[in-house]
Every structure is written in structure tokens, then in C-alpha cells.
């Protein structure tokens, strides 16, 4: 049986490519973490809960939880977008701003509290049962590709990857080309110096949290459609950790590449190495990989170089 798998290169390609595609979905979750970490040095443990909150809100609006009116997908997404932006900015205003200048561990503990609050709040508001989210993207193999090359890939995963790609491209442009993006990078480098040139930290942080809310919505839509909208969405945060460690906490490019690495390598390991260990290595393989990266390159593959002049 094992030998048969090895003999089929098409199957190997299929495994790796579908791994890459799900890897992009990991990147999407990790992106929210990286963004906030980059701008404020805060590791927002609650990002996973944001994803859950966004997905639950969206699905509930579609199902008519608001005054019994069933909103169409696009409208529901727009309303959820507004809710996530407001929620992100409220978190910044009510939780993090009062803690300005406190040590990082205090901020981290605050985000852990925020995580559990958000999980509970979302379920209190919209209920805790598993819900189905249909984005109208077919969850079936791409026939054309299968007929032409014999490789089976899901249309849904391809579309999801494309959406993630567009989001990443947009963010990269935002960071490098706009005044706000540049100010954001300045704040992440040295926030007192940023204040000294007149960049208002509060505005910048509000923008960052709003964008993190938007990313959570996109991740919540795609993951919610894939897995069903349920509590376990907030555990995606744990899947994002190895991605962040491998890519570097403050690098957008790093997070994307690391997501691809994690996605492809875990699938590959599961299918081709797993059988020797009795399987089920997919779940812990990324963490081993992350640990190895930590030992060799502590700031991650693409993490900002620690600039030291001597």
C-alpha cells in the first residue's frame, strides 16, 4: 500500500497543493495576529475568538436573528464588517488604551481575558449550536483540471486561496504605499518617536484593530463555510501559532510563506510519513517544525531583523 502511494507523483502533487491551499487559510488567521503585533507589540490572544464572533454574527444575520429579517449574504457580510470594525475599535478604546505603558505580560493577560469574553459574548448573543454557512462556492473538485491533468483540487479551496491572496496583496500595498500604513510601521518601530513627530498612536491603533476585525471576518467566512460555524473556530488561534513562529510575528510575507509551509508539510507528513508512526501526526507536526525554527532562527524566517549597530 505504501509503495503504491510513492509510485504516484500525481497524488503527491495533489497532497502538496491541497496542503498549500489550506495553508493559505492558516495564514489568513495568523495575519490578524501579525498585524496587531507589528503595530503595537501586543500578542492578541483573542484573534481566534474574533474569527468565531465574525462567523457567528454573519451566519446569524443570514438566518434572520436580527428582527427576523433574513439578510442576503452580501448585505449580512457588510453589516458584520461594520460590527467587527466597531468591536475592534471598542476593544482598543476600552481595554488596551487604559493599559498603555503597562508591561507586555499585562497586555497579554488582558487579551486572554478578552478571548474568553468574546467567545462567551458571541455565543450568548447568537447561540452555541453548530451552524452551516453557505457562501455559494461549490465544495466539489474542479472538473476541468481533473480531466486535463488528473489532479483533484477543490474549487472552494482555490477560491478561498484567491480571496486570501487578494487580502494579503491589499494589506501589503496599504503598508508600503499609504501615509497611514507608513505611520503604522513607524509606530511599530518606536512608538515614542512616532508620537514625537505627531502621529497620534490612538488613531493608528484604532485602525489596526479595525483591520484585524476585517481579517477575522474574512477568515471566519472561509473557515466557517469549510468547517461549519461552531465554537471550535476560535481554536484556529492555536493553528496560527506555529505559522507565526515560523514566519516571524511581525512579517506579513513571512506569515503567508509560513502558512504555505505548514499547510503543505503537515499534509505531506500525514500522508507519506504518518503511516510509519501509526498516523495522526498532522496535528502536532507544525509545532515540531516551529520548535526547530525557533532553535535555528528565533525571529522566524522573515521576522524583522533585530538591527544592532556596533
Amino acid at each position: 500500500m505504501l509503495e503504491m502511494i510513492y509510485l504516484d507523483p500525481l497524488f503527491a502533487i495533489e497532497v502538496v497543493v491541497s496542503g498549500l491551499l489550506s495553508g493559505i487559510m492558516y495564514s489568513l488567521v495568523a495575519l490578524g495576529f501579525a498585524l496587531i503585533f507589528k503595530a503595537s507589540g501586543i500578542f492578541n490572544f483573542a484573534q481566534g475568538a474574533f474569527v468565531l464572533f465574525a462567523a457567528l454574527t454573519l451566519v446569524s444575520l443570514i438566518e434572520g436573528a436580527l428582527f427576523g429579517v433574513k439578510l442576503p449574504l452580501l448585505l449580512a457580510a457588510a453589516v458584520t464588517l461594520v460590527i467587527m470594525v466597531v468591536y475592534g475599535m471598542a476593544v482598543e478604546r476600552l481595554v488596551l488604551r487604559p493599559l498603555i505603558n503597562q508591561s507586555l505580560i499585562i497586555l497579554f493577560m488582558a487579551t486572554i481575558g478578552l478571548n474568553f469574553f468574546t467567545e462567551g459574548f458571541a455565543q450568548m448573543l447568537w447561540g452555541a449550536q453548530v451552524k452551516r454557512l453557505d457562501l455559494g462556492i461549490p465544495e466539489k473538485p474542479w472538473e476541468g483540471l481533473r480531466l486535463a491533468t488528473g489532479i483533484t483540487l477543490s474549487v472552494f479551496e482555490l477560491v478561498a486561496a484567491a480571496i486570501a491572496g487578494v487580502l494579503v496583496l491589499g494589506l501589503t500595498l496599504f503598508f508600503s504605499k499609504t501615509t497611514t500604513g507608513r505611520a503604522l510601521r513607524a509606530v511599530s518601530d518606536d512608538n515614542q518617536a512616532a508620537m514625537s513627530v505627531g502621529i497620534p498612536l490612538q488613531h493608528i491603533w484604532a485602525v489596526v484593530w479595525a483591520v484585524a476585525g476585517i481579517i477575522a471576518l474574512v477568515a471566519g467566512m472561509l473557515w466557517g463555510a469549510k468547517l461549519g460555524v461552531q465554537f471550535s473556530l476560535s481554536l484556529l488561534a492555536l493553528k496560527a501559532l506555529p505559522v507565526l513562529i515560523i514566519g516571524g510575528f511581525d512579517s506579513i510575507v513571512g506569515v503567508i510563506v509560513a502558512g504555505l509551509i505548514v499547510g503543505a508539510s503537515e499534509k505531506f507528513a500525514e500522508v507519506f510519513v504518518g503511516p510509519y508512526f501509526g498516523g495522526a501526526i498532522e496535528n502536532w507536526f507544525p509545532y515540531v517544525l516551529a520548535t526547530v525554527v525557533l532553535l535555528i532562527k528565533p525571529q522566524g524566517l522573515f521576522g524583522e531583523k533585530i538591527i544592532e549597530r556596533v
Partner: peptide, 22 residues
């Protein structure tokens, strides 16, 4: 500020442009 506090990961020109933020 004392100790210069340039934004190390921004280019010189980007540093200058942040000064025009307001």
C-alpha cells in the same frame, strides 16, 4: 529626541515622510 530615535526598519526617505504626517 535624545538618542535620535529614527525608525530603524523604514528607509531614510520614509523616515522623513513620517515627519509630514500632521
Amino acid at each position: 529626541m535624545e538618542g535620535r530615535h529614527c525608525f530603524g526598519h523604514l528607509t531614510v526617505e520614509e523616515n522623513l515622510l513620517t515627519g509630514a504626517y500632521t
